[in-house]
Design a protein around this nucleic acid. Sequence first.
DNA 1: GGTATATTCTTGTATATACAACTTGTCTGT
DNA 2: ACAGACAAGTTGTATATACAAGAATATACC
Lengths: 235, 235
Amino acid sequence: MIAKFESIKRAIREKIAQGEWGEQHRLPSENALAQQYGCSRMTARRALTELVEQGLLTRAQGLGTFVAPFQSQGSMMAIRNIADEIRQRGHRHRAELLLLEPQPAQPEAAIALGLAPGETLYRSCLVHLENESPVQLEDRFVNPALVPDYLAQPFEQQTPHEYLCQVAPLTQAHHLIEAVTPSMEQCRLLALASSEPCLQIQRRTWSAQGVVSYARLLHPGSRFRLGGHLMVESE
Amino acid sequence: MIAKFESIKRAIREKIAQGEWGEQHRLPSENALAQQYGCSRMTARRALTELVEQGLLTRAQGLGTFVAPFQSQGSMMAIRNIADEIRQRGHRHRAELLLLEPQPAQPEAAIALGLAPGETLYRSCLVHLENESPVQLEDRFVNPALVPDYLAQPFEQQTPHEYLCQVAPLTQAHHLIEAVTPSMEQCRLLALASSEPCLQIQRRTWSAQGVVSYARLLHPGSRFRLGGHLMVESE
DNA sequence: GGTATATTCTTGTATATACAACTTGTCTGT
DNA sequence: ACAGACAAGTTGTATATACAAGAATATACC
């Protein structure tokens, strides 16, 4: 059984994703939404509150609730495609497919994708090479409900990221970046002599329908730097 | 007038900060808190809910509410002040000043600040502690032309970042993130036993007049994760 | 015309209540 | 001894209500 406030959230996201409610559009009031969805004001309010926290809406006392501008946070780093990045540097990109199969969801991946542990998900594992030197180990879990044909794709030609962007347009992403010590297996795949520190990026990506994929991107510290500029808003 | 749920939040943060409630400590139930603070369960619940979202608490249906394990989680979006971040988690922040003096610019810092090598710049070096555990080693170079009084500041009270924001409002920042192996000296200052990988953030900040400062922020990989959500622009 | 004032609509806070879902421990019957 | 049923306590969801606070509009007054 899905909670009612969740279904209201989804309905609102839907309207925004479809373009029915554009940027800065004013939503119906809490009371109006409550009536539309046949619930109490507090339930409608909860849906709105959570979407505000997510950054999808903004609200102002006395005025109403509005669709947030899509750039509201001040754009940070674009989500980059490693293949494009490498080609942009004038180098050759090649990917080796290490694994591509359905798997029962392990707890970590299940939580990240919002599935129940043990449910089937699709997993792919690739190593990306820049001029034949490994620069990224990509371990990715994909939500089969949103990307049913994932397993049939030729990922040595088109990267998973490129494919996912086509079939499930990104709306949001969440990143977690940390420095880690690679396992021996990871060292081997990245052709690391000693166990040098690696930069691991965990990335969850959403489309309008929900969490599309959860990826762990491991980069050798010596061959990778993550850059970007930030605009500072008010402070 | 401060909202009641806010005061409850602060009271809970306080208890955690004072160490009265350690990691994994189980909090009183919602009903108990409501009685303690003389409010309804829903109000106590709201305080808890928001602290959970902030990452300070975790909860499990049927079990209770618990103090979350202390793990730093920085926001990637906004440029934030590490002291605020730590306090917001309900922990104690303290900074030790290791160095504060004028220096001739070394090549790397000179380039970053747009000065000629050998020109004088100001350098500060601090270690930031969260509950007496080192979480950031801050090595900062400052442009004396834009911040002449830098050397006279009491940086154990007010962090360099806070001071710089006051005297030279930020307009832009550029970040470079990488995984590095800390030097022996850095290990000592961060109280790292073995040489675990560290996350290094290089940050250059601009005000309207030009580059204000160049900082290298070193975080132990085991005590720091950088998180944030990104909206994807064009796609 | 311009200025207060009142009204109305919005979101924000707070309370009281009810039931559902989950976890743990206890008790009971076999 | 074991299994199952049950009870108690916890968080999760949902409702109904009341009043406070902020913002815009309408109205009355000078």
